[in-house]
Amino acid sequence: MATALATREDFTYRLWRYDGAPGELIPLLQSAQDHFGYIPRRAISHISGVTNIPESTVYGVITFYSQFRLQPMGKHMVRLCDGTACHVAGSAMLIDSIQDELGVEVGDTSEDGLFTLFTVACLGCCSLAPVMMVNDDTYGRLTPASARKILRDLRRREGRSRKEAAAPEA
């Protein structure tokens, strides 16, 4: 857990500061997710204990909103836009290509833990359609081939850095 200590304070600070004011559940869940990358089982118990909101209610709120995740994420988050403009520009074909390239279905994480694939309703850069985001970088005017290339290059870089990490002296 040592690596995550830097952001941990925010989550615990929020919990500690909680004074029973109503409406704090969603911000608490958001800070938990910022901290862990998802909402683990123990965070639900912890929040429930502090706020006196039953765990079942907390779970109900988590599953209602698409932002919250109950599973850990891959190292890279691939978000493919399927808003109206991107859809008209052929994003359905891109979904197939990307699923095939990464070997995952939408919503899942690849076996090597590198990629998690999502579709989103709109990224708001409709004039660059079709668009995908890989982590914080946006790629526009995609074709099946260019989308595959972007992901393949990323995977290749990952493979290289992994090898370097395994043999740093060599």
Binding site: I26, P27, L29, Q30, Y65, S66, Q67
Partner: peptide, 8 residues
């Protein structure tokens, strides 16, 4: 400011 959590 209240941040939404993704629900149309």
């Amino acid at each position: 400011i209240k941040q939404g959590a993704g629900a149309f």
